[in-house]
């Protein structure tokens, strides 16, 4: 008998009742979020010590390069950027920047568009796609994220996609941190040491 058959033979039983599984999710206990003030709620979570992301705001996507330049200058970093091949980003005027698509092992900064922001936790939601690589977001020292204010949702339950799933659906809630030496918190264990969110008041396009 194969291991599969042996295991399943021991686990024979009634098929799960979808209604019973769904009933386990009625009115879940979760942090309260003021749905009338999602932006303020989201920004409050971003500021928590466990997330400690900085933020800026712009009115249109055309303002994005200036906001990125502002951030990098404030950090004393060169205007060098890993930019995914996303038409919404390439449409901007990046003159003055040195751009590249693949992240270097010692990448300084990368830019990505979040599909959603989650007010409950201050999380940013991403999915892999041809225009959205994953590695740069985990490699660069500065992770810069564009998020449309209209894409801020209340709870984590708002994040899952319905239907076909991408290779990776991921939530980022802060920077790469560790407490592995004596429980002391250190930022930038492996990946980003800084997370900077640029809120877009208009639509991403």
């Amino acid at each position: 008998m194969s291991a599969r058959d042996a295991i399943l033979a021991k686990l024979k039983g009634a098929a799960p009742d979808k209604a019973a599984a769904d009933a386990l999710l009625i009115a879940p206990e979760r942090p309260a979020v003021d749905t009338g003030a999602l932006e303020a709620e989201f920004l409050a979570r971003l500021a928590l010590p466990s997330v400690s992301a900085s933020h800026d705001a712009i009115d249109t996507v055309a303002d994005l390069p200036a906001a990125v330049a502002r951030y990098l200058a404030a950090q004393g970093e060169p205007h060098t950027l890993c930019l995914p091949r996303d038409p919404r980003l390439s449409a901007c005027d990046w003159s003055g920047f040195t751009l590249h698509e693949a992240a270097a092992p010692d990448e300084v900064a990368t830019l990505a568009i979040a599909r959603l922001g989650i007010a409950e936790t201050g999380s940013l939601v991403f999915e892999t796609a041809p225009q959205a690589p994953m590695l740069p977001n985990f490699l660069a020292l500065h992770h810069i994220v564009l998020l449309a204010v209209e894409d801020i949702a209340a709870h984590l339950e708002d994040a899952p996609l319905v239907g076909a799933q991408p290779r990776a659906h991921y939530w980022i809630t802060g920077v790469s941190g560790t407490t592995d030496i004596e429980g002391t918190y250190v930022r930038g264990a492996h990946g980003p040491r800084f997370l900077h969110v640029i809120l877009l008041r208009g639509a991403v396009g």
């Binding site: 985990f138 984590l156 799933q165 991921y170 939530w171 809630t173």
Partner: peptide, 14 residues
């Protein structure tokens, strides 16, 4: 409130 990195992997790369 949540671990910093939470990822759901579904199959290999598309």
């Amino acid at each position: 409130t949540l671990t910093q990195y939470t990822t759901f992997y579904t199959g290999p790369k598309r």
